[in-house]
Design a binder for these strands. Structure first.
Lengths: 194, 194
DNA sequence: TGTACATCAGTGAACGCGCGTTCACTGATGTAC
DNA sequence: TGTACATCAGTGAACGCGCGTTCACTGATGTAC
């Protein structure tokens, strides 16, 4: 073989990571396979040695996005010893920084609307990613039972994703900050009061 | 003239309404001008007698979507004399019916993610639509000042839009109902307890 | 009132472009002998 | 150890398709005389 086994795997992973970022930033229709391959300094023809279709890549990239965002969120939670974990999480999710960086942002905020229109395979991948996401977050939430904590996590995250998505859509920067601030305030009050 | 003045206006309005529904259901890239014109039983060439570009139509359709959704939400609020207005609003917004009917759904839930990637003109139209939307809804919300009520409206609506969008994305119907139910419960508790 | 002309919403072919996907080919390296 | 062959990640031209947009044209009706 021209390339080692590790080389193929590495290219595959680089593709998934690049796609994960570009899909979050521009949506599934917002970047072409040629653009992605360009980013890795490859030509578009080679794409199909790694994936059966663009949809295939989209699904893999989605899983990657969930995992990456989860890691980055929890990392900052653990690095802050003084502030309550959930408060760190909320402040980080609803920050101007997260709002500006769609590339590394939460896939729920960036993609849930378009995923509703995707084929079943993609939507099932989404379910799986969401469930893992929620399972890792729910321990930080109030609630007597796991069901209750998961429900709280689902509502908090869908709510924050909605606020983030709205803030990103809005043209007026003052309104953008207002949305994020108001959401931060309310979710902190509701979930961090205990 | 071949057609009366009213005829042109009528075609224009039919186009905006059809586009408003199709954009909400399929996203801005999800339907073509030819599809839209087909729906009105016209040919695609005539489109440019009514709009300078697809983007132009998108902006007009967005304004229409806000107005239509606002009307339909408030209508049901006023038709229910017994239940508290805000509770009617929440139950309606987070219903399985709204979840299933993207065509007549809230533009925030369907389009905010993609509007973040639209040109400034469209985003400014979105701002305007959102402000009107919020101004009409805020009187139903708790809060001592108008600012406080508007903040509450922004957080409630972005939160509900996020929950709706997530429920639509999810493949598992049980999870879908769980998300809507949990969100209904929390928002009712938080905003309707007074 | 009747006639010639102007208007313009709508028609449908055409253009240019980008996209997802296919395919014959390349050539460095692994493997068989 | 050295040589011939097989492999397959990556190349780049090509295909077919759908899309937004343009444009010369149509023809029913409004308007000028």
């Amino acid at each position: 073989m021209r390339y080692s086994k590790e080389h193929k795997q590495a290219t595959h992973e680089r593709l998934v990571e690049a796609a994960s970022q570009q899909f979050r930033a521009h949506g599934g229709d917002g970047i072409s396979i040629a653009d992605l391959m360009d980013e890795l300094q490859l030509t578009h023809g080679g794409f199909y040695r790694h994936f059966a279709s663009k949809e295939d890549l989209y699904a893999e990239a989605l899983t990657f996005s969930f995992a990456q965002k989860l890691t980055s969120l929890l990392e900052k939670v653990h690095n802050d010893g003084t502030t309550p974990p959930l408060k760190v999480l909320i402040n980080q999710y609803l920050s101007l920084e997260h709002c500006a960086n769609r590339v590394d942002g939460c896939p729920v905020a960036a993609l849930s609307a378009e995923i509703a229109r995707q084929p079943l395979v993609v939507r099932e991948t989404f379910d799986q990613g969401l469930r893992t996401y929620m399972a890792q977050i729910s321990p930080l939430l109030p609630g007597a039972t796991e069901t209750e904590r998961t429900h709280n996590a689902l509502v908090l995250f869908s709510g924050m994703a909605g606020a983030l998505s709205l803030a990103r859509a809005v043209a007026d920067q003052a309104l953008q900050a207002e949305i994020l601030g108001a959401a931060r305030e309310l979710y902190t009050k509701v979930y961090c009061s205990s």
